[in-house]
Simulated assay, not measured.
Amino acid sequence: MPNRQKKIIFSVAGVLSFACVLVVAAAMGTQFWVQGNVLCTTGAQLVNATGQELDKFVGRFNYGLFQGQTVKQCGLGGRPFRFSFFPNLVEVIPASLHVTVLFFCGVLILFSSVATGFFMYNAFGSPYETLHGPLGLYFWNFICCFCSCLVMILFASEVKLHRLSDSIANFKEGTFVYKTYTEHFDHSFWLIFLTFLVHGLNILLIRVAGIQFPFQKAKELDVNTGAADLMY
């Protein structure tokens, strides 16, 4: 492939990687990772609410990695409550798992920035040095894909397996008991999945530019070395 086309491909991939940096940073600052509804089971059981009456006991919530808000309803109107994970909810959430999610989000931002630099270096610098060439391009994008997968898996396990929404809804509640009624991941969570897809696209762009996968080259070298050994 001509050098001009390679420069264009690497430049496009670099812009996509930098967009991932901005997207992940923006997603971390929002409170739209999870949203849903919460049911006041205590109030609903007291009046034996069913059908449309149950709506008077259903509130809503949404939260992100740092903060969120709930509107609790127990038959007497909405009761809004804003919270932050640190330091308010440290005692009721799986704090180590939550910090791990934040850590890998930071790692994803860092490695996406590094991948951006490597793409731009290969577009306008010396493209075939060891870590600045094919190995570096594939290496950092594979790491970004891996980190984005870890962020989604760890956060999903925190929400579903550790019942994070229930813990938030029942924070500092002594009389009423709340239970998650509906729950789904919001758009900020799916932005991490978009980041995974973008880095996967970058890997394909590297291949389109005519650069073989590193392990393919290693196999070819092994075959050639073995043939040479047999000859001598």
Rank of each mutant, 00 (worst) to 15 (best):
T100G: 12
W140G: 12
E158Q: 09
N48H: 09
F111K: 00
N48C: 03
F139Y: 10
V99M: 11
L110H: 09
L131E: 03
I143R: 12
L154E: 08
I153L: 04
L110Y: 11
V99D: 12
V71I: 12
E129S: 13
G117E: 04
F142E: 15
P80M: 09
S126F: 04
V101K: 09
Y121M: 06
Y63T: 03
I153K: 09
T50N: 06
L46Q: 15
I153Y: 05
F146K: 08
L46S: 15
F104R: 02
F83E: 02
S165I: 07
Q73W: 03
Y121K: 10
P134T: 02
A49P: 11
G77H: 06
K56S: 13
V92A: 13
S157H: 05
M120R: 03
N88T: 08
V151K: 02
F139W: 06
P87W: 00
R82L: 01
K160L: 11
G78T: 05
R79I: 06
S157R: 12
V58K: 13
L89S: 06
G68C: 02
R82V: 05
G59Y: 00
C74S: 13
N62M: 08
G68H: 00
V71Q: 01
R79W: 01
N141S: 07
R82C: 04
T116D: 02
F118I: 11
I153M: 06
F66K: 13
L164R: 15
L135I: 07
G106A: 13
N141P: 06
L108E: 14
R82Q: 13
V99G: 07
G43I: 00
M120Q: 05
V90E: 11
F124I: 06
L150R: 03
L154K: 15
G125C: 02
F111M: 13
C147A: 12
